[in-house]
Design a protein around this nucleic acid. Structure first.
Lengths: 234, 234
DNA sequence: GACGAAATCTATCAGATGATAGACTTTTTA
DNA sequence: TAAAAAGTCTATCATCTGATAGATTTCGTC
């Protein structure tokens, strides 16, 4: 038997009897994140996942309790991976925010962050997979909404909003800066969630390094424009 | 019997025997657009639609042939409504584009268009319903993709791209202008597709007139910023 | 008023889906 | 080496889902 169906961390209490299941569990998670991300919770069947993962159907119930349990486990797995990937930059940014930040400094850090985000969400094959999972759950709140909102979205938008405010010469993010931050983050949507239509509209066959540069240039233009409009009507 | 299952326009050929079904058909469409828009094709069951519409289950097969037929009919219905709603502004814009347009003129027209779009997609209750339908099909191409892409998305983005180019002092939309246009359109996403998370991030309880003004102000800021950056590195 | 097309209904089917039962296999431990 | 835990499998269940069959009702036409 298995105790904690969701996190699955309760194994090897004081003497592990037999543990090979970690591989199967990981394999199921891997396949499920991709499948749920591509097609959504309702469209994916447990049989599809089990078949693709190369395991028998009841393995899902065995390791995750239910289809929904598997879905939640995917979200937790993603949060873990994301935090690992972005911890350096995030740490640096939070440290910076504690002291007074010059507008140009905030602007450059914004560019740096969005360069990383573009790579993470648009270019890198591996992260596209879970990025679609997150994007879907964020725009259509489901069982995993809270965990993704609190761990990914909320800290991310807050950071961007604070930096936008600094770039505009303010000391703290107000509502206007937060809205600008949302629009800036939304600039990634066409190339992540909206990839099929963006490539078609721009007549791109793929999004490679050349395209990545053009996207980044457009986002940097937008950051520069925000920074340039320092004294806003308030 | 009924001939054309999808468009359903083949009735009353030369002498209509008996026709009450138009009401039922309309009612099914109305309910289906909302349901598909809210939850997506796979998550909605034909029974849900039939029950909500207050008709028996086989009515869907009778009028639309199949669930997918109903879905396609929804898309056609939406295209019709959208064209009706936006034809004035669109006509005006296309006429304008035929002659040389001053940057300030293009900028103002952009603002006017996005003011209308914001009302259409964000404020107005009626259009939110089908807007979610369109947004979903656009980002996850399904059976109705082609019709929505060709009739709504393509002409819309082309128009915005041309105006963005003019606002930047160019005579024609190049790739950079098209990307800027995509980012501008993407600015609506947080408040349409991303409404639940945007309201939560901004601590808004609803999106009323006050919020609409703030959104519009942010979009206008972005348009002004684009127009201000006329001489871009090319 | 009778005929027939149009429309709507009840009942049912075949397949898919999430979940479970229970037998069998693998590995650890004592 | 035998007991026990962990893991995996086949077979099956109950339910849901899209679709169909076929009877019944509605209403314009002649």
């Amino acid at each position: 038997m298995l105790k904690d169906k969701v996190s699955g961390t309760t194994r090897n209490r004081h003497s592990q009897r037999y543990s090979k299941g970690a591989d199967t569990r990981r394999q199921l998670l891997e396949v499920a994140i991709i499948a749920f991300g591509e097609s959504g919770y309702a469209s994916v069947t447990t049989r599809q996942i089990a078949d693709t993962a190369g395991v028998a159907l009841p393995a899902i119930q065995y390791y995750f309790g239910s289809k929904e349990g598997l879905y939640l486990a995917c979200a937790e797995e993603i949060v873990g991976r994301y935090k690992t990937t972005t911890s350096e930059t995030a740490q640096f940014a939070y440290t910076l925010l504690k002291r007074s930040v010059a507008p140009s400094e905030a602007r450059d850090l914004l560019k740096r962050i969005f360069s990383g985000l573009t790579t993470l969400l648009v270019t890198s094959e591996n992260s596209q997979l879970w990025a679609t999972f997150v994007a879907r759950e964020i725009r259509e709140p489901g069982p995993a909404f809270e965990i993704l909102f609190n761990n990914l979205w909320k800290p991310g938008t807050q950071l961007v909003a604070e930096l936008v405010a600094r770039a505009k010469g303010q000391q703290q993010a107000d509502e206007e800066a937060t809205i600008d931050a949302l629009l800036l983050i939304a600039a990634l949507v066409p190339f992540q969630t909206g990839r099929p239509i963006a490539t078609r509209t721009l007549k791109w066959r793929q999004i490679g390094d050349a395209q990545r540069e053009k996207i980044l240039a457009a986002i940097n233009r937008q950051i520069d424009r925000i920074a340039a409009s320092k004294a806003s009507a308030a």
